Amino acid sequence: MDSTDMFKHILIPIDDDAGSRRVIEQAVALAHSIGTCVTGLHVMMEFNVSGIVDELIEPPLDQLQKLSRAHADKLFSPLTYEAEHAGVACDTIAVQGDSPWRAIVAKAAESGCDLIVMASHGRRGITKFMLGSETQQVLTHTEVPVLVVH
């Protein structure tokens, strides 16, 4: 079995990190070379305002959600551009969640993705220990193969 039989749908988690640009380039190039499609995923922050006085929130919750979605669309722009120019079918999904790795694992399964291509953010030492690693969590909790781009 060659790679064209193995991978039909690549999930590309995208965030604000500079590594996302490298991931987009690598994932789209791979998708183009094996004739597969890609889906970009951005996990937007959950806004939990329970217990907060509405007047203290600037802007209101619905406005925060619109701003978050606009930010996601901006993050998807390089992916849609690269995919279009490479002739790769591309979809994007923005979801809200407190745990990006959980959303990545869930969307890969729900969308029938058979490869996840994501960045290694390069955290080291105590920072990695304290903050954890979304990539490490995905690697630990998914049954889908993961290609990590450094």
Rank of each mutant, 00 (worst) to 15 (best):
K8E: 02
L61D: 07
D17N: 06
T80F: 06
E110M: 07
V49I: 08
S68Y: 01
I14M: 01
R69G: 07
S68H: 02
K128N: 11
I10D: 01
H121C: 07
L115S: 04
A72K: 02
L41T: 01
A86T: 03
D114W: 00
L147C: 05
D73N: 08
N48E: 11
A18L: 15
V138T: 07
V38H: 01
V138L: 07
H32Q: 13
K66F: 08
G19K: 06
S133A: 09
M118N: 02
A103N: 10
A29D: 11
I14N: 00
A18M: 12
I104W: 02
L79K: 00
H9I: 02
E82H: 13
E134A: 14
H32A: 11
A119F: 08
A83R: 06
E25K: 12
F76M: 01
D114S: 01
L115Y: 04
D15I: 03
L67R: 09
A108D: 06
L30N: 07
G40V: 00
I12S: 00
P60H: 12
E58I: 13
T127L: 12
P78V: 06
A94N: 07
R102L: 15
G125P: 08
E58A: 13
S120M: 11
A70R: 14
T80M: 07
M45A: 14
V144H: 05
D91R: 12
D62I: 12
S50P: 07
V117H: 01
R21K: 12
A70T: 10
L61Y: 08
A31H: 03
D17E: 09
A109P: 08
A108K: 05
Q137D: 15
E84A: 13
M1P: 08
Q137V: 05
A94R: 06
M1S: 15
Q26F: 15
H42C: 00
G125H: 10
S33R: 12
A29M: 08
S77D: 14
L11G: 00
S20F: 01
A94K: 08
T92D: 03
S99N: 14
I52E: 05
D91A: 15
C90V: 07
T80I: 09
T135D: 02
A103K: 10
T127W: 11
L75A: 03
H71S: 03
P78H: 05
A89G: 14
A89M: 14
L75S: 02
P78A: 06
T4Q: 14
C113I: 00
Q63W: 14
T142W: 00
A72D: 04
Y81G: 13
A108M: 07
I104P: 02
G35N: 03
T80Y: 05
M44W: 06
E25W: 07
T127M: 11
V88G: 01
A83G: 05
G125M: 11
C113G: 00
R123N: 12
G122F: 05
G87W: 10
F47W: 08
C37R: 15
D17F: 03
H121L: 09
G132C: 12
R21D: 04
T92L: 04
K74F: 10
I52R: 07
S68A: 04
M1D: 10
H121S: 10
I34D: 03
T36N: 07
L75P: 02
Q137Y: 14
A86L: 05
H9Q: 05
F7E: 05
